[in-house]
Structure formats: C-alpha cells, structure tokens
C-alpha cells in the first residue's frame, strides 16, 4: 500500500528537550503526536493482558509440565519425564488419535456444509434476515447448554432418536401383519454415546452442529464481496453452477475460508465442552481429547504436572498451523 505519511519516526533528543519545558498535559499530548510513541502506547493494554494472562501462565505451564507437581505440593523438577510417561500411555495415544479424527472430521463437515448453507443464504428470499438469525442460534448459545439438550437426546434410555427408530420398527411390524407386541422387548436402538465409534460420531455431530453457523455466516460475508458482474460473465460463457462456484466463487472467498477454517481448527482441536458434557471421555477413553485428558489428569486426578504436559502436547500441532497460516497470509499480502 502506498503511503503519504512520513517514514518511521523516532524520538529525537531535540523534541525531548523542547517538550520538557511544557506543562505535563501538553507534553503528553505532544509525545502522543509521535507516531512511534503513540503506536507503542496504544499497544499497552492488549500487551499487558497478553503478558499477564497468556505469556506468563504459558511459561508457568511449561515449567509445571517439567515437574512432578501434584495438588498442594510445589513439585520437583523431573525433566521430560511427564512427556515420556504420556508417550508410553495408551490412553494418551488414544486421546491423540481421537483428537486428530475429531478435528479433521468436524472441520471438514463444517466447511462443506457451512459453504452450502452460505450459498443458500446468499440468495434473495422472503424472511432472509430472519432465517440468517435463526440458523445462527446453535453458534451463539452456550455450548454446554445445547450440549445438555444433545445429552438428553442421546440418552441411552430416553433418546428421542431411538424412540423414533423404535416407532418406525414397530410400524414395519404392523404393516407386515405381524402381531403388534405390547412390550417392545429388548430394543434399545443405537448406543449413541455407548459404543466407541458412535460416541465419536456423536461428539463430531454436536461440534459440527454448533460450529456450522459460524462458517456459514463468515462465508456469507465472503460471498457478499463477490461482485455479481463476475457471474454475469460466467453466464454468458455458459458455465454451469458448479463450474461457477469452483472457478469464480471459491477463489474469491478463499482468504476468508482460510482464516475461518484455521480459527475453527484451533477451537475444535482444543475442544473441551462437548466431550465434558456428553461422555467425559468414555466409553473407555474412546472420546478423550487432549483437553479433556489434560483435565482428567490435572484436575480430577491431581497430577498437575502430567496434566500440563498433556495440554502442552497440543502446542506443536497448533504451532504448525499458526506458522502455515502466517506464511499463507504473508504470501497473499505480497501477491495481492
């Protein structure tokens, strides 16, 4: 971007001397006229928060993960023992795998269906505004609260889904002339949270349900930046809808798609609430994620060192994502 402002300025000793004689308020005012000074001053609140509540606890966490700290004790330095212990633990392996599957599946579902929904919402129709606000609901209500509704809908005994399945099953029996049984017998339907693969499916479903509106609305914002003339050109060329999407829409919403997807990847990768409410990691750890395992190790079994280490295992992967995105953004910047 071309700029007409003067090049980066520094505080020269001359201005310092000149301002020293002015009253305090004026002096501060003059100081703030200096681009560099103002730049730093405006950064202070954000940096203060970040240093005190992110950087410092982060380094504390790194330290903790190197100790054998259990609740109520200071802990002794043990080097990388916690990490080694975790790497030997099958529960940890499972949690790592689970997190990878969970994150990839949920992010892909959210991105694909979110794009679809955004395209639908981008059309003109009556109640468009209202519909947009409605589909946003899952994203804005507290996850634990909507998670509770899902927990109830997945309940092993009272699941509404299973009730419907059973009802259909019973319908089939009566349709085919079989005796209508008074007692439905032992039919419980799918164990939504009880069998390992279905439980994984269920937590992915709930996470996707919740995150999808965020994708849809962000993509919608992206779609609205696409000039309609481009499509008109496409229409003349006689391209079909899919080609238009692939060659015109997608490249244009790519920047926002990348940002949103990465943001969602991070949030999904570190998800805690869905699992905490629905399964607490069960059945037999088949739905534990890094975050819930860290919570179980650190908070409920009191091994703060091990818990911190489990949480820190997230960092290398998140770090790679961060680096990739920084690289990507920079390339986009220089390219466009």
């Amino acid at each position: 971007m071309k700029s007409t402002t003067p090049p980066i300025s520094t505080v020269s000793s001359n201005t310092l001397e000149a301002t020293a004689r002015l009253p305090l308020g004026k002096r501060i005012g003059q100081w703030l006229e200096n681009e560099a000074v103002l730049g730093y001053v405006l950064m202070v609140p954000a940096l203060l928060l970040i240093v005190v509540f992110i950087a410092y606890p982060f380094s504390l966490g790194v330290w903790m993960s190197l100790t054998d700290k259990v609740v109520g004790t200071p802990g002794n330095f043990v080097g990388l023992a916690n990490f080694a212990k975790l790497l030997r633990s099958e529960i940890f392996h499972q949690a790592a795998w689970n997190t990878v599957i969970f994150t990839i599946a949920a992010t892909v579902i959210k991105a694909v269906f979110g794009m679809w929904l955004a395209i639908l919402l981008n059309r003109k129709f009556r109640l468009a505004r209202f519909t947009r606000a409605t589909v946003l609901l899952p994203f804005i209500v507290p996850t634990v609260l909507s998670g509770l509704a899902w927990l109830w809908m997945f309940d092993a005994t009272f699941s509404v889904f299973n009730w419907v399945l059973k009802w259909l099953w019973q319908m089939e029996i009566s349709v085919f002339g079989l005796a209508l049984k008074e007692n439905w017998g032992y039919v419980r339907g799918p164990l939504w949270l009880g069998s390992p693969s279905l439980a994984m499916f269920s937590i992915i479903l709930v996470n996707a349900w919740r995150g999808l509106p965020f994708f849809a609305i962000s993509f919608l914002a992206g779609l609205q930046t696409v000039p309609p003339e481009l499509y008109d050109a496409g229409n003349i060329d006689g391209t079909n809808e899919f080609q238009k999407f692939w060659h015109i829409t997608l490249p244009l919403v790519k920047p926002i798609a990348v940002v949103v997807t990465v943001f969602s990847f991070v949030v999904t990768f570190s998800d805690f609430q869905v699992v905490y409410i629905l399964t607490r990691g069960g059945p037999h750890n088949s739905t534990h994620l890094f975050a819930t395992l860290a919570y179980q190790l650190g908070m409920t079994s009191g091994n703060l060192g091990e818990g911190a280490a489990a949480a820190l295992f997230m960092f290398p992967i998140l770090g790679l994502v961060i680096l990739w995105q920084l690289f990507y953004l920079r390339r986009e910047d220089s390219g466009g």
Binding site: F154, D155, A156, T157, F158, Y186, R188, L191, W192, L193, G194, S195, A199, T279, R280, G282, P283
Partner: peptide, 21 residues
Amino acid sequence: CDEGGLAWDDTSNNRAFLAET
C-alpha cells in the same frame, strides 16, 4: 445386560429402573 450401560452415569440406572426398562 442393557448394553446402553457403557454410556451411563450414576443417575442413568435410577432413571431406567423407574422407567421400567
């Protein structure tokens, strides 16, 4: 057994018993 038990918490069997399942 009721195979749903794999997902039960401490309250589930109370509910299931009272619901006569």
